[in-house]
Amino acid sequence: MKTLLIMACALFSYYGLTAQNVSNFEYKDLENNSRSFNELKGEKLTLIDFWATWCKPCNKAIPELNKIYDLYKGKGVEIIGINCDGPRSISKVAPLSKSLQIQYPVLLDINSELKSELNILVFPTLIMVNSKGKIVWIHEGFVSGDTEIIISEIEKQLKEN
């Protein structure tokens, strides 16, 4: 039984070598409008930021993502914020987002459906998706100096696409 389980794990890992795709999703934004990935995605690249109001590194990353958004807007790169606050803290998302002056759209995934779908394990997690919907880069956490890493990855992916 245990051997079969180990074999199953190995096979899963082997077949999992190809990158995951992002399917279209739809959630409400801060103004109670339904918005979809297909509507918001970038022509070349889309950065999806998974965050929550109670997560301090997430809040620290937001002004940096704003800068990146300003830098690449109009160059085929878009950012989507996916907020994963549950019922306890979801009411703080809109006032905090507006106070932090988030420039890019923020969608509310109160049931953490997309988080589970894309195997998000920590907050914040930044996912980079190419024009074909394939996840090309994943970055977990946020500390000083990560902005440069994100920018360098965007440049790399823009050259490859």
Partner: peptide, 16 residues
């Protein structure tokens, strides 16, 4: 996983 409204009736969750 499914939550109804703000969780007054039902809340499911997974803590990563």
């Amino acid at each position: 996983y499914e939550t109804i409204g703000r969780g007054l009736l039902l809340r499911s969750f997974e803590i990563p």
